[in-house]
Design a protein around this nucleic acid. Sequence first.
RNA 1: GCCCGGUUGGUGGAACUGGUCAGACACGCGGCUCUCAAACAGCCGUGCCCUUGGGCAUGUGGGUUCGAAUCCCACACCGGGCACCA
Length: 973
Amino acid sequence: MSETTNSPAAESAGGAPTETTAPHRYTAALAADIEARWQEFWEAEGTYEAPNPKGDLAGDAGSVARPKKFIMDMFPYPSGAGLHVGHPLGFIATDVYARHQRMTGHNVLHTLGFDAFGLPAEQYAVQTGTHPRVSTEANIVNMRRQLRRLGLGHDGRRSIETIDPAYYKWTQWIFLQVFNSWYDPEADAARPIDTLVAQFEAGDRPTPDGRAWSGLSPLERANILGEYRLAYASDAPVNWCPGLGTVLANEEVTADGRSERGNYPVFKAKLRQWNMRITAYADRLLNGLDALDWPEAIKLQQRNWIGRSEGARVDFPVGDDKITVFTTRQDTLFGATYMVLAPEHPLVAGADNGNGTGSIVPDAWPEGTHDVWTGGHATPGDAVAAYRKQAASKSDVERQAEAKDKTGVFTGAFATNPVSGEQVPVFIADYVLMGYGTGAIMAVPAHDTRDFAFARAFELPMRCVVEPSDDRGTDPSTWDDAFASYDAKIVNSSGADISLDGLGVTEAKAKITEWLADQGIGEGTVNFRLRDWLFSRQRYWGEPFPIVYDEDGVAHALPESMLPLELPEVEDYSPRTFDPDDADTQPETPLSRNEDWVNVDLDLGDGIKRYRRETNTMPNWAGSCWYEMRYLDPHNSDALVDPEIEQYWMGPRDGQPAGGVDLYVGGAEHAVLHLLYARFWSQVLHDLGHVSSSEPFHKLYNQGMIQAFVYRDSRGIAVPAAEVEERDGGYYYQGEKVSRVLGKMGKSLKNAVTPDEICAEYGADTLRLYEMAMGPLDVSRPWDTRAVVGQYRLLQRLWRNVVDEATGEVTVVDGEPDEATLRALHKAIDGVSQDMANLRFNTAIAKVTELNNHLTKAGTPVPRTVAEQLVLLIAPLAPHIAEELWRKLGHTDSVVHADFPVADPAYVVDETVTCVVQIKGKVKARLEVAPSISDADLEATALAEPAVVAALDGAGIRKVIVRAPKLVNIVPA
RNA sequence: GCCCGGUUGGUGGAACUGGUCAGACACGCGGCUCUCAAACAGCCGUGCCCUUGGGCAUGUGGGUUCGAAUCCCACACCGGGCACCA
């Protein structure tokens, strides 16, 4: 998830002021001492442990009775050599929020685990030549050390690692739940596969070829059930990435046809792979978004990814066969002057596999075939075979690059336009994708930009059937582009049985759809862009599938008693990778090299038999699809989570109809990967009755990125940012002028700053404050090490306001604070409370700073009550110094569970407010008035003001706008 | 190409639903105090331009309004997502 491929964990960068005349001054050394002591205290006391209502983590009933808050971060990958300061931004934010929630009476669950399977961890292992388990565990140890140093208040008992067999036992278990279920359209939900088998057995549901279920072989039955299971293996075109040696999900392939990891080319290859039938949930995944408190941008991305479009399926007869197309413009059916199939379409398969021609491809070109249609081939079979071969060898990158130039070839076949009766030629072209719709389109060149380009290239006829609303006329041969607007009238669309002429697009769609359905040659339908989730990888470092194959090749689920199926320890874990550009390669699973493990004798209920294990592993998303549930009940060996515990923390409630985590903070890069997959698993588990929540994350918040300046020399090579000097408005490295741009922080750009360095120089509380003060949480901003000192100074002034630097004694005094201090205090409490609740930590810090500056400026000893409330205010942000001061102020309990201050409304408003008096929007006078002044009194006072009278200079008044108590605006006549 | 965001001092950023002279808080910078000196700390100043007083300022140009950083339109630039999806 949040990647950590960067920056060595450099120890102490030094630079802390060492000599001081004041032995109790708040220095980096003192901060380090305070922080270490309190971190030990918290750990020993279990300060952050949140009680469950039952089970091994059950605890204090009073705490359980409080309102709960489940606050989560997207958990990190332990790859690379540690964290840079960008990584903990979200962790600190959730920690501050969680601490505030704890202090306002909530039972807060906050912990952090590690997403440790998958490509990054494995690549790091391969690079360093260590076994992934060894390097991953070492990385986890290092990251835990770094995170502990930040003082994050996590319930350590609940931390999980996805590579722990006790954890992935349940990942495998969930896979089996998915495997052993099917999507029942009547229930609009997943149901156990047994319910489907029962329907087949009883004859309520016919088998595909009509034979009785009992008459089918085990393999035949398995194949039929495979068509229904929510996890299934199938031969389908998949994204094959030779450079990584594995196949990838659509979500892991970038827009330009490369792997998200490693940026290698991706090819389409037909391989037998495991898939998750996420498409069955397309509508529910789409509709479920409405109830979620997520950023609209993320919801929009998911909606676009799911890509629901309403249209129609229409059959076009071709000899004895028919081509079924999906279209969203069934209203333009009369304008369909040719058809296009995807190169992989089954109706043209066979042309290139030695079985003669495909089913619709004739032996010879029809009389009068246009030269440009044949591609220079002697027969349609040759042409189709050649084009299919060429398309298959093209990487997605090449296909993208050539997107503008339409290519294709005539199949030699003609189809019948079902409304006009016209014979239209059938082409194959790679601008039609097998994976979308039916892999075939009706082409309406006059009204579709792609069809227009293709028709121009192949000199195909166009017919205008939607009257252009501009002045281009109705002859498409004179047009520069297609007329694709929806806001127009249908023309030229009358046949023997139906006419659409004169109708608007919407009415025409409805009419033709109904007619098609009546004729039995089409129907209105909904199509999704979303495709099934490719779930297997040819990698070592992942969860093994709990699946074995018998001698017939039938897949069997391992029984729960055999879980976890542990990943075998092997010497040779490297994936077989290839020349990244070589499409003619085949994946090889590392686990398959291990014959002893692959071949196994098991008793699956009918005696001991020999089986072969599945040797693919699960993708790295598997472990992160459900981890929120395991945090709740991490040691349960009987269930993935106890239902009562799940209900307590995640169950549906007021305002959260689908349940879920109260706050989930992480980067926006997971909009359609992790966040979609996790929702899918959550809905399946909900359908099957395992959890009460149907959505995993009620509120989602995307934190921004911490960026850093990248300095490059004249060759464009990044130079170490720490050694660049700024002078005369330019930047210099070793005397050479370098350029500066804002980019990501990372080792490769030589601009990484580690939390260890900052902690060593200033302490963790300063780092926490700085990260929170930099700006709003959801906005990206550049790191500036020089500016960190500002928050360090805040803590020093805070310390000095409470503690004598020479003696270490508390300097606060008893007695009532003065009026101005009380107002400053309560305004701060009021503002900070609101800011905390709304994740506006930057302004919360500004308000704390203001209060602290007020006390500093007063120059007198701080009243005890004010000091205590100030310490409580800053406690969520800077917990270590707060604990230390709290203790020094005489408290023996931890500040973590103290009550957050509550503002007294009497002091939140000022005694008098400044009211401006404007004339036509220009300020002419200022009045000091009581905040409670009425509009009428204020107006009277304002009009009586000498400066106003003078400015009006006897002019009449047209209008007076009064906004008591702050503004009066006079509009002269 | 389509869809989302965004653009405020030298810098990061404030400004609740349009309502005090926009610039809180912090960095940086300048000055002063303390000091033998420095560091630390404290105090003062710091949007721009004309050196009274004023004028101009929230990417640019229009508009709505008594009043616009905030609402509307157009444009420019930056960032992100999708991209031959029928």
